[in-house]
Amino acid sequence: MWELFILYSSYTLLLLGSFLSLTFGLGLLRFPDFYSRTHAAGVADTLCAALIIFGLSLQSGFNLVTIKLFLILIFLWFTSPTSSFTLASTAYRSGYGIKNNSSKRAE
């Protein structure tokens, strides 16, 4: 009974994670300018990664595999703000998309 519950919650988390990864793809294609797209990428880096990794770790039980999964998650959560910030600040300092928000030309 308990195992079934764990299995189904793992499935739920994985499906939610898949939904969020599709959401991220859609947002990346739909949003009109570069700075808005970074927000869509933020969804994939934070909650989508967390849901998929939680779902996988429920299936593995508690062993070294779980710890490795959590190390991956911690690592993603530590590095993703750094790389998003570096990306956004490089774009800002090179003057991209500041004058008008429509951002037609670049480089």
């Binding site: 570069f34 797209r37 880096d45 990306l87 774009a91 998309g97 480089e107």
Partner: peptide, 17 residues
């Protein structure tokens, strides 16, 4: 694209995926 930053953003997100 259209800009280099969109491409780098996409490459980075691709890596996460």
């Amino acid at each position: 694209g259209p800009s280099i930053f969109d491409r780098i953003l996409a490459a980075n997100a691709f890596g996460t995926k």
